[in-house]
Design a protein around this nucleic acid. Structure first.
Lengths: 162, 162
DNA sequence: CCGCATCACTTGACTGAGCAAGTTTTACCT
DNA sequence: AGGTAAAACTTGCTCAGTCAAGTGATGCGG
């Protein structure tokens, strides 16, 4: 009964739901990316890094902590930070306390970038997501998302960046 | 009033909703991919191509039509089909009626792959999405997804593959 | 029926992500 | 202390995706 091959195929309503969700899954991230790339030549991922740093104590974080916030591998993060460093938005230094860890810090120009990109990004999220939903739907969406995220965490123990 | 810089930043509840949704947006596609890659050494995108062909009249479609179904650029599709052809799961032929169009057709072994992967894939979708939701939540999710998808279509007129 | 725009791809150059292997520094065990 | 394991990145290799340019084939205006 628990064998995967025995679970019924998705029925009509489920298929429609899945298809609609799949559409969002496929389109939403690219549109969000597009704004940042057009306006600031930034990946959504790179923006996430800058944003995380901007909210951090002292505008700087160890790479591993940052990788956690950005749901990323250290490898991916490392390459992204190299790119950001080239633009002088981030600077790296090794932690004097533990010379294995390198601390990524936001520069002033990096902070300016975040300050100018973040409101536009939030506005786009509002337009695409919250403006299309009733307050009740938004609350339900939060529940739904949490449930699915929990299921993902359980399933196979998969986690990004680990 | 309609200037983007004037829209209020996301409030607490919205931020939580967005953060939960962003998690799903980031994690769900990779987990879905993982199964196909581990089990069949297939990208979700490649699977989509095979699946679309399997449901098509004569198990074959012109590249441009297929690109529409797969929400993809012709360029991306072309490369993917090259890969699938190397594994003898798809074969290309030029349409005798219009020698510009090339028709991608599913081979028998390709059909076998779809037949074996599709149920497992559907089962995973069920476990991750529908098993975590009440029937009512699932219905709401369909509404929500449609609304967001509609907002995306309106916004900036962006469309994948075009 | 000829020339040129257009269509339907394909391909070359480049970029970002993943995996695995390598480096340096620290922690632990005895 | 001394040696080994582990942590915290970084980097080489390879691959998929994008963008722009290239290649035939077709349609169409005069």
């Amino acid at each position: 009964m628990t064998s995967p091959s025995e679970s019924a195929p998705l029925d009509g309503a489920e298929l429609e739901t899945w298809s609609a969700l799949a559409t969002v899954l496929e389109w939403l991230p690219p549109v969000l990316d597009l704004q940042l790339e057009d306006g600031w030549d930034l990946t959504h991922f790179e923006f996430g890094i800058l944003y995380a740093l901007s909210t951090a104590e002292g505008r700087s974080l160890p790479m591993s902590t940052l990788a956690g916030y950005a749901n990323s591998t250290l490898s991916r993060l490392s390459r992204a930070v190299v790119r950001l460093e080239k633009r002088d938005w981030v600077r790296r230094s090794t932690d004097p306390g533990d010379r294995r860890v390198t601390i990524a810090g936001l520069t002033d120009s990096g902070a300016e970038v975040v300050a100018s990109a973040a409101p536009a990004h939030a506005a786009l999220v509002r337009r695409l997501v919250f403006d299309s939903l009733s307050a009740e739907q938004a609350m339900t969406l939060r529940e739904i998302s949490r449930n699915i995220a929990a299921a993902i965490s359980d399933e196979g123990g998969w986690r990004p960046g680990r």
